[in-house]
């Protein structure tokens, strides 16, 4: 099931879509057998609205990627101050969230 918002606003030209698919295969440098081609094209086509939405997202210039790829780690953008400190400290130091 896909989100309604994921649906493309207009149907792209099939020939153009096929050409883009072939171009992406060429750029990726992958070999696709004859039997795989049609189902792979179907999958790729389904992915296009999601990818278009990703490409159309508005991002500020200062929005950096998470280079560490450790989003829950200290300094990677999500760790809450006081929850985790490095070294020998433990998460036991965190205040309890709620009353027993």
């Amino acid at each position: 099931m896909s989100d309604a918002a994921d649906q493309p606003s207009s149907t792209p030209d099939p020939a153009e879509l096929q050409a883009r698919f072939e171009a992406e295969i060429a750029v990726a440098g992958i070999t696709v057998s004859g039997d795989d081609r049609a189902p792979l094209y179907a999958m790729w086509t389904e992915l296009q609205p999601i990818r278009a939405r990703l490409r159309n997202a508005s991002l500020a210039l200062e929005e950096e990627p998470s280079f560490t790829q450790k989003p829950a780690q200290l300094g990677a953008g999500i760790t809450l101050a006081g929850v985790l400190v490095s070294g020998q400290a433990t998460v036991d130091d965190k205040p309890a969230g709620g009353q027993p």
Binding site: A28, L47, R51, L54, R55, L59, P65, S66, P71, I78
Partner: peptide, 21 residues
């Protein structure tokens, strides 16, 4: 299918991933 992702799409995804976090 997972190979068909460009470098700039991947970087854009990482930027949005950081925003989501």
């Amino acid at each position: 299918a997972s190979a068909l992702c460009s470098a700039h799409d991947l970087v854009r995804a990482q930027r949005l991933r950081a925003r989501l976090a």
